[in-house]
Computed example of a mutant assay.
Amino acid sequence: MPPTVQRRPLTDQAAELLRARIVSGEWEVGSKLPGETTLAAELGIGRSTIREAVRTLAGLGMLESRQGAGVFLRSITPPDQWPRVLEAEAILHVVEVRNAVELEAARLAALRRDASDIDALRRALDGRSAAAHAGDAAFVDADIAVHRAVVLAAHNPVLSELFETFVPRLRAALLELIGVLDLRSEQQPDADEHRQLVDAIEAGDADAAVRISRAHLDGLADALLAQLPG
């Protein structure tokens, strides 16, 4: 009985399980894989998840989808970049959530900030700069402190609670991001964008705050997408 998917994200798990079955020699190169319905039943997941997993492996050159014919095995050899692809996709999920939380936080912060919020934002920026040479973990913590200060300046307790719940996953993703994109804290990645965001909040320019925050997150997403094959 083939193993079933038990942990999230389901698409990554399904892709990894399919890859393991390919590497084990379950199917010969050039052969047709079972249909979506069969694979979904074997793995205990939905057809849409299987479809995304097949798309991932097709992007890696291991599978080939032929319209009207099905999915065929192209290569058994797992690519060297497989762990990197999974990391990039997982971090992209976090970036999507950051868009949902941080864009609204930036907008509200520009509308509701007070003098103490601006002081806190400036201190957080200084802390981020000071941590530039202190190693990845220290830099990530200082970076999160800036975003936390933005959220607090929004003066929405529910938004703050949501952000704090999300922080552990955010921290893990940022640490992974430094490795995936070969960033190093001493380069102070995106320092100017963070400073511009704080300037926009201080000026009460909600549109600029949202635009700067979106550009920052879109830049991360684009860089991660560039890591994915196809």
Rank of each mutant, 00 (worst) to 15 (best):
S75W: 13
L10V: 15
P79A: 12
T49L: 10
R98P: 02
P157A: 08
R211C: 00
H216N: 04
S129R: 15
P2W: 15
R98S: 09
P9G: 08
S129Q: 15
R214F: 00
E36I: 15
V158R: 11
I144D: 01
D207L: 14
Q196G: 08
Q81I: 13
A53D: 09
R171T: 09
V29P: 02
E161K: 14
Q81F: 05
N99F: 15
A15W: 07
A88S: 13
R7L: 12
Q13G: 08
A20F: 01
F72W: 04
R122P: 07
L152E: 09
I45V: 14
T38E: 11
A138R: 06
D80V: 12
S31T: 06
E28R: 09
V23H: 02
I178W: 03
R19L: 14
D143W: 05
R148M: 04
P157S: 06
V71A: 03
E87H: 13
D205S: 10
R184G: 01
L10A: 15
A223N: 00
H155W: 08
R211E: 07
R19A: 08
F72G: 01
A90K: 11
E161I: 09
A130D: 05
R66V: 04
W82V: 09
R128L: 12
R21D: 05
L220Q: 05
P168L: 04
Q67M: 12
A115E: 13
Q67G: 12
V71F: 03
A132P: 01
L177F: 07
T77R: 11
E16D: 14
V140G: 04
K32T: 02
R195V: 11
A90V: 06
G46N: 13
A223Q: 01
D136H: 10
L162T: 14
D119E: 14
D126Y: 00
E104V: 13
V54C: 05
L73G: 00
R195T: 12
G68Y: 02
I45T: 11
L39T: 11
R107E: 09
H147E: 11
S65Y: 03
V101M: 12
P157T: 09
Q196I: 05
L86F: 14
E52M: 12
D222P: 00
L125S: 09
A20I: 01
L228Y: 07
E193K: 12
P189V: 10
R66L: 06
V54Y: 07
P3N: 09
R112W: 03
L217W: 03
R112T: 05
T77H: 05
E104R: 15
A200R: 02
A200H: 03
S160I: 13
L159W: 04
L92K: 12
L57N: 05
P157R: 10
A58E: 15
A88D: 11
A209M: 07
I178A: 13
I91P: 05
V101L: 15
G70T: 00
A53R: 10
V29D: 00
H93T: 14
V94Q: 14
G61M: 07
D119M: 09
V198F: 06
L103M: 11
G30I: 08
G135K: 07
A134I: 00
G68C: 02
F139Y: 10
